[in-house]
Write a protein that binds this DNA or RNA. Sequence first.
DNA 1: CGGCTGACGACCT
DNA 2: GAGGTCGCCAGCC
Length: 119
Amino acid sequence: MPYDPERHGPQRIVGPGFFERVFEVVARVPAGHVTTYGDVAAELGMRSVARKVGHALSALGAERDDVPWHRVVNSQGRLSRAADSDSGHRQVCRLAAEGIEVASSGLIREFEARRFTFH
DNA sequence: CGGCTGACGACCT
DNA sequence: GAGGTCGCCAGCC
């Protein structure tokens, strides 16, 4: 079930856990660049948990504006959320503010060139 | 305690 | 390309 603040209430982000580690990695992506769920998972040492990375980002509360979740896209360089959805639109706007254009198809322009790789 | 559930990805028709 | 399948596993019921 997708995260629904109406039903689930505010997210509790307590102590260091998996979610927190995801946030720390995502926070390393510089403005104007993007990364993928798989890359974040690999950076955590678990390539198989790409899906959990998305789960962690979905749990982000409004208080965590320090986590640039909008810079995370799928391995195709495409937005994972519906472009017409509320948060999908927010993602497009945030990316545009950093000079990243998103085609109407949801595909990031110049994806490979803007892709950030962790060291 | 046990069953679901995915902001995914690799692989296979 | 465009589908479908399967593995993944931390949280939430």
